[in-house]
């Protein structure tokens, strides 16, 4: 088994959770941004309400992605009794803070999703709740970015680690948000949202490749008694190749999806799988370059 695969569950977690959270934020912004053009046009207003209600309900998609990621990461938890003790380390241990932020975000997001099915409209409360949830989601993303900044692990303690995690997540989030918005019927009303998602995805992919290359370059100068950074950097280069191939494949599928008169969800979904496989390769490579100060 190649190095890094011993932490496969954490690789899945860091692939899915940040992307799902950012996708939630993106869709939430779409919900909070009014997009009807003419307030006097009743039919259009009704249509907008329908789309917003559908978007609310389809928020379950990014939420599920985050939940799957979080549950997968919990395989490290041997005893259920330890689950709540985890919260004792909030603020002190980065991993505790990370899980705590995740749970707060999921609780807020979950309650928001449940109320989306309520028959009583509460627009103001909904907006406030969603805004608070976005803040919690941001906190969760930041906590995930900072979780690996430890002075004792040379190869991880660099700015490229949180930066590439963010850009990779942004790429996954864009395509996930695209699926959610398409399911909710939002993209057919706002074509520029499609463009925005595609542009974000492309820029994020380029940034990820650039940041990982820089990280690999920096890593090749590290050396400890047992490990040679230059050898370890090879894993990062290999992962970059896999990531680039996956991103290209995803691009082809997205292009095919958008060319059709009616955007094909299936094509975007296949593209999404490619994107996540690419990110997963990078995450596995990240766990394989674990190099502590002492050894």
């Amino acid at each position: 088994m190649p190095p890094g695969f011993q932490d496969i569950t954490l690789a899945i977690f860091t692939t899915l959770a940040p992307a799902g959270t950012l996708a939630f934020i993106m869709v939430s912004i779409a919900i909070l941004t009014p997009f009807h053009l003419d307030k006097t046009d009743d039919i259009q207003l009704q249509e907008n309400h329908k789309i917003l209600a559908k978007l609310d309900q389809f928020l379950v998609l990014p939420l599920t992605v985050v939940i799957v990621g979080l549950v997968t990461s919990a395989t490290h938890l041997g005893n259920p009794a330890n689950a709540l003790y985890l919260f004792r380390g909030v603020g002190r241990s980065p991993l505790s803070t990370e899980v705590f932020c995740g749970i707060v975000f999921l609780l807020l997001g979950g309650i928001y999703w449940l109320q989306a099915f309520s028959l009583k409209p509460r627009p103001t409360l909904r907006k406030i709740w969603l805004s608070v949830t976005i803040v919690a989601a941001l906190a969760f993303v930041v906590s995930m970015m900072m979780a690996y900044s430890a002075h004792t692990i040379l190869s991880w303690n660099t700015i490229y680690v949180p930066a590439s995690l963010l850009t990779a997540a942004l790429m996954g989030a864009s395509i996930l948000a695209m699926i959610t918005l398409q399911l909710g019927g939002y993209l057919s009303y706002r074509r520029q949202a499609t463009l925005l998602c595609c542009a974000t995805m492309l820029l994020a992919a380029l940034a990820t490749v650039a940041l990982t290359l820089l990280q690999a370059f920096e890593l090749s100068f590290f050396r400890t008694a047992l490990l040679d950074g230059a050898n370890m950097a090879l894993w990062l280069y290999a992962a970059i190749v896999v990531f680039a191939l996956c991103a290209a494949a995803a691009g082809v599928f997205i292009f095919a999806a958008l060319r059709k008169a009616k955007t094909s969800i299936l094509h975007i979904a296949i593209g999404c799988i490619f994107v996540f496989v690419g990110i997963f390769a990078l995450r596995i490579a990240f766990y394989s370059i674990h190099m502590t100060v002492g050894l």
Binding site: I67, V71, A74, T75, L77, G78, N79, P80, N82, A83, L107, G110, L114, F117
Partner: peptide, 24 residues
């Protein structure tokens, strides 16, 4: 799902989901 997590997944995710399905 890891056993340690099942006890949390059921009340926090499955029970509300089931309730929602019943309400709808």
């Amino acid at each position: 799902v890891p056993i340690a997590v099942t006890s949390f997944v059921i009340p926090l995710i499955l029970v509300p989901l089931c309730g929602l399905c019943i309400v709808l």
